[in-house]
């Protein structure tokens, strides 16, 4: 593994290696010195063309816990055209000696472009590209499920995961569908037809329009954020109607099996796709997801940068 661009590139062995490494690295957080010397002298660049709080901070924390030097590059407000700016930025980073570039970009395929160019020689980690993929989010979701429902061991064989909401715009949903399928889980996507992408029937998952029916057998319910900034077209009649049919409120949560987890990649619209009382409920592992994000990103950085080059 040289880059992490998409969860479709990961075999089950690769994915389990990342999760197992993350499990060991999670123990570092309990120690008096929460730092390992492993990536000393390596430079990790966070190249963020889109806004992000938790992903950028999470990658920064992960790199720092491994003693890497971190450079944060926020391209917000850049007036350069995308193609030029990505190339020029990459050449600059290469000249500065970046060993890894963590990239978030509004255009699907940006990470792939960077990895398959000769602009940069370091590892490329996709931290979200357009509506395409967000592999480390899917890995931390899988880690959280495995931690809570499988004692942190093995695959997710037979686990029923329901992913609800704006699948059309969600890179989190895409990355999760492929990764969870690789790990043996059964995924059901629930969304209004307008928020499902063309070609979803070819994905390795079930599709349903009825949330109440889907959640009865769920081991995990993952609520996706309604991406208000992308809601310029009329995807649903009103926020209230969406919330009624596809939101997770307290009565609906009560129909879940007792052991089932509620997840959300954040940031949440409380009261929209998830009720505040649900977000703060005992079975909600949303805060764990953030914690696990650091462990999983440490594992990815270690596996990409820790060993021999090339």
């Amino acid at each position: 593994m040289r880059h992490l661009l998409s969860t479709t590139d990961l075999s089950q062995t690769d994915a389990l290696a990342i999760l197992d490494t993350a499990r060991e690295l999670a123990l570092v957080a309990d120690r008096p010195v929460k730092k390992l010397p492993t990536l000393r002298g390596r430079t990790v660049v966070n190249l963020f063309f889109e806004d992000s709080t938790r992903t950028r901070i999470s990658f920064e924390a992960a790199a720092k816990r491994l003693s890497a030097d971190v450079i944060n590059f926020s391209a917000k407000g850049s007036s350069l055209s995308k193609g030029e700016s990505l190339k020029d930025t990459a050449l600059t980073l290469q000249a500065m000696g970046a060993d890894a570039v963590v990239i978030r970009h509004g255009a699907s395929g940006a990470a792939h472009r960077l990895a398959n160019s000769d602009w940069i020689h370091g590892a490329v980690i996709n931290a979200g590209d357009g509506t395409h993929e967000h592999p480390t989010q899917a890995l931390l979701d899988a880690f959280t499920m495995r931690d809570h429902l499988r004692d942190g061991q093995g695959s997710l064989d037979g686990l029923n995961v329901v992913i609800v909401g704006d699948v059309l715009h969600s890179r989190v949903a895409r990355s999760n569908v492929w990764l969870l399928d690789t790990l043996g889980a059964n995924v059901t996507l629930v969304a209004p037809p307008t928020l499902l992408p063309v070609g979803v029937e070819t994905w390795p998952c079930e599709v349903s329009y009825d949330l109440d029916e889907a959640i009865v057998k769920a081991d995990v319910v993952m609520m996706l954020r309604v991406q208000l900034e992308r809601m310029n077209a009329s995807f649903f009649p009103s926020a209230r109607e969406y919330s009624r049919r596809y939101g997770l409120d307290v009565p609906r949560m009560a129909t879940l099996p007792d052991h089932a987890l509620v997840m959300h990649p954040g940031p949440m619209n409380r009261g929209m796709e998830i009720a505040a009382d649900v977000a703060d409920a005992e079975r909600s592992v949303i805060v764990d997801q953030v914690t696990n994000g650091v462990h999983v990103r440490m594992a990815v950085l270690y596996l990409l940068l820790g060993g021999q080059e090339g």
């Binding site: 290696a17 197992d20 490494t21 060991e24 690295l25 123990l27 390992l36 010397p37 492993t38 491994l66 270690y302 596996l303 820790g306 060993g307 021999q308 080059e309």
Partner: peptide, 20 residues
């Protein structure tokens, strides 16, 4: 586990971690 503390990390492929 001492894998993360080795001085020859860059001379070999990444090693799997063991529990501490």
């Amino acid at each position: 586990d001492v894998g993360m503390y080795r001085d020859d990390l860059r001379l070999r492929p990444t090693v799997a971690l063991h529990p501490t």
